[in-house]
Amino acid sequence: MDFELPLFLFNKNAGEFYMKSDTAVPVKDMPKTDPRMKLIAAKLKKESFKPDALIEILHTAQNAYGYLPKEVLSYITKALHLPPSRVYSTVTFYHFFSLKSKGEHTCLVCTGTACYVKGAQAILNEIERGLGLKAGQVTADNKLGVQVARCIGACGLAPAVVLDDEVQAKVAPEEIVQKINAKIGTL
């Protein structure tokens, strides 16, 4: 190994970049040990390992894990015969994909125009005041992550918050902390 980047290692002998991996399991054996990887392997097969299906496969991986672990990216990169840089650049380009865990439970505050006009910022302020979390942060125990969405398309119900997968309509700022606590048990 000659030098390393946040996500890659450069092997001088092979003259190649490798994606870092935290596990000792060889990449090709991963589907055997992790059922979530089986899902990804199945999707890869369904898309007949076409590089242009990269985004579709990343969707599958993101849904299975809740984020994109390095070893999973490494596996996809090899399976599609793509340079790691191409996968990395795609992953970091789209909001949907995340390289870090978003927390077991998620609180997604919509900040689209309608929600903005109706006080989405007050909801975010209240979450920060009540739970000490800003948008994009996760609690230390990884229980809850707070995110913002550009628009979830539920503008008639503004301001809207999505707790896990459930849309909460016309949320009043003062009730948001209570709703979150009810959903995930008291923090």
């Binding site: 900040t111 689209g112 125009t113 309608a114 628009c151 398309g153 539920a154 503008c155 008639g156």
Partner: peptide, 10 residues
């Protein structure tokens, strides 16, 4: 439909 505040296509 990326415009915030639009849900026609949806």
């Amino acid at each position: 439909e990326g415009d915030p505040g639009a849900f026609m296509d949806r």
